[in-house]
């Protein structure tokens, strides 16, 4: 397994970490891409999904958007955006070559988990709690802001966590279309048959993904005091298939 030797040599050589196309710079670029796209998706998706959930409208769309998003390959969408006349491979400030195309693709892929989870979070607030709030004379806005949002917050955050991890993964794939980010090290290593380098890049990407997931899990725990100390299971989280992401109406169709 000389590849592992090559990988280690690549990672332990300080020169590979510095410079404009070094690991550190690319890592920073990919983090910047990830956070920008997540923020954009939050600004677009959260208000719409939360308000629709509050009103109880548009459920079919809010839930099925996740299924559609899953079926569209990230790589294909990125490829289409890059080859199209707009946004193409234009440089965009610190986001690098094809920065705009990558940001667009990342935002689109962050939207479905955010929208679906936020909508479900609002809908899953117990009906009697909602009824009680109405009985106390709360207005629609008060109910949304003081009752539904605090109770639904854990599920909303779990959607954000899923989106974060997904965006990081997608940002890596940008390198397949010669875009920005750490994936460059992987694809470059592979295209030049320098597998040690490719695997070194993969290791860094995987490690950061795990760190992001852990940080997001901690943040999720912080907003949900009831979850602390209880064993896993029982409660729906980001990856569970039922009941949060299974749409009962979807199965009666057709």
């Amino acid at each position: 397994m000389t590849v592992f030797g090559d990988m280690w040599r690549y990672l332990s050589d300080g020169a590979n970490w510095s410079g404009s196309d070094g690991i550190a710079a690319l890592l920073g670029q990919q983090l910047l891409l990830t956070l920008t796209a997540l923020l954009m998706a939050m600004v677009i998706g959260l208000p719409v999904a939360l308000w629709l959930g509050h009103l109880g409208r548009g459920g079919f769309l809010a839930i099925n958007i996740s299924n559609v998003g899953r079926a569209i390959p990230t790589f294909a969408l990125l490829a289409l955006l890059v080859v199209a006349p707009w946004p193409g491979t234009d440089e965009l400030g610190p986001y690098g070559r094809a920065g705009l195309a990558t940001l667009l693709a990342l935002t689109l892929f962050a939207l479905p988990p955010i929208i679906t989870n936020s909508y479900v979070a609002m809908r899953e607030v117990a009906p009697d709690v909602r009824e009680a709030a109405r009985g106390m004379g709360m207005t629609g806005w008060q109910r949304f802001w003081r009752v539904e949002l605090p109770l639904g917050l854990p599920l909303v955050v779990s959607g954000l966590r899923l989106a974060l991890v997904q965006v990081w993964a997608t940002a890596t794939i940008a390198a397949l279309v010669a875009g920005p980010g750490l994936g460059q090290i992987i694809t470059d290593g592979f295209f030049r048959s320098n597998y040690g380098k490719g695997i070194a890049g993969a290791l860094v990407v995987a490690a950061v993904a795990l760190v992001l997931e852990l940080l997001a899990a901690l943040a999720q725990r912080a907003v949900d005091p009831s979850r602390r100390g209880t064993p896993t299971g029982g409660r729906a989280d980001a990856l569970s298939v039922a009941p949060a992401t299974v749409d009962p109406t979807a199965e009666t169709v057709g």
Binding site: M1, V3, F4, V165, W168, A169, T170, T172, I173, A175, L176, G183, I186, T187, G189, F190, Y195, G198, I199, G201, A202, L203, V205, A206, A209, L210, L212, E213, P231, T232, G233, L239
Partner: peptide, 26 residues
């Protein structure tokens, strides 16, 4: 074992595909 199995599989899921394939190549 349940939480261990769930934690490990979730950990794998977190790793981007473009990183997972190279890690299997050796």
């Amino acid at each position: 074992l349940e939480s261990a199995i769930l934690a490990v599989t979730t950990g794998i899921y977190t790793v981007p595909s473009l990183a997972l394939f190279p890690l299997l190549v050796p």
